[in-house]
Design a protein around this nucleic acid. Structure first.
Lengths: 194, 194
DNA sequence: TTAGTTATTGACCAAATGGTTCCTAATAGG
DNA sequence: CCTATTAGGAACCATTTGGTCAATAACTAA
């Protein structure tokens, strides 16, 4: 019927996500996006709408990937606690192993934009509920197996792990090193086991 | 000798800091700063240099205030552990009590800029060392009084508290509420006491 | 009063910003 | 082989960006 798209939408979105992840929303200009996506302005606008829509689409893509990763990694552990430990250590290695310390796109976006961008705030909330459920379920299972302390609720322990992990993610963009992260992770597990 | 400055440098810097705190570095334009500081562009440049220098000056001001606050609040507790608890709860109430959820200027700046702004990175590191020392010293004292567990070193516990607190700061810009923060704080202390 | 010094102001600037439009190219269905 | 439809690309746009500068105003020491 009409001229077919020459580029791969998914790959272009991936490239846009990388650009936003590297430099943040404000600091990523249309020119940056054009270069990263290897597209002209007009094509970007036709395919994705304006910069903000593109950003939200990129964020959604990131969050889907992230949630799948979280779920699969946790479930691949030999026990619930070991799943969590594996997840945390893997995340730390991934985040700190990047050449440019760019943290986590979600955390970055919340800090940069959530208090002035309803769509970001909404996605942050949704992702957190998802993750919180996943953690809580896992910790409950660990408590049932007597490998996690029970004087705090699974939900409370999940919150502690989340918040600590997010703190690490934020600080890896600054003074926190990989080895410091790994030590903190070890100590978190020391505190929550029986 | 010459025409005296008509405005209060310190107050102008304070206003600039508020503007950067509210909207971040990139999203704060010269026009925003002019309005916030109630000064013309020329005056700002003469008095503070360019936007980046002004930002660094504002950050330095913030960090000095913050460190004094931390020190005084912790020391005003009846015991080391109570000092830390008082500090954490006070911080949470302050940060969450703002009309615009804007977190902490340092954490915001690290996430937005530390991986591309050497001066921010350097200040982040310096502030963290200061704070880490303060925490470690306090926790050591608490351990000596048998009010904090000793199977982790004071330095390790300090890291855990820092990272958790920073995670909270970041997330108050998103989905984390004040009451959730207070509960997390309570649980942190549950985990570190004997 | 005056000379020297510094602050304030507003006009000015080049470059970059996000965003639009319009013309051409390419395709699939009839 | 048309024709409707959509993609691509480049030129274009107004606005805003951070930043400069020259003219003027205000002050003090002599």
């Amino acid at each position: 019927m009409a001229r077919p798209r020459e580029f791969d939408m998914d790959q272009a979105l991936e490239q846009a996500m990388q650009a936003f992840w590297n430099h943040g929303y404000e600091a990523t200009s249309l020119s940056d996006l054009m270069e990263a996506m290897d597209l002209q302005k007009g094509s970007i606008y036709k395919a994705f709408g304006d910069k903000h829509s593109l950003f939200i689409a990129a964020l959604d893509r990131y969050l889907d990937d992230l949630h799948n990763f979280n779920k699969e990694t946790i479930e691949s552990g030999s026990t619930p606690k070991e799943g969590l430990r594996l997840w945390l250590n893997t995340e730390i290695k991934l985040v700190c192993g990047q050449t440019l310390q760019r943290g986590c796109l979600l955390v970055n976006s919340i800090v940069e934009r959530a208090n002035q961008d309803e769509e970001v705030a909404q996605r942050a909330k949704a992702h957190f509920m998802r993750t919180h459920k996943l953690f809580t379920k896992t910790i409950e299972a660990g408590q049932a197996l007597n490998e996690i302390r029970t004087d705090l609720s699974a939900s409370e322990i999940a919150q502690l792990i989340s918040v600590s992990f997010i703190g690490m993610l934020a600080m890896t963009k600054g003074p926190l090193t990989k080895s410091a992260c790994l030590q903190i992770a070890k100590n978190i597990f020391k505190l929550i086991e029986i």
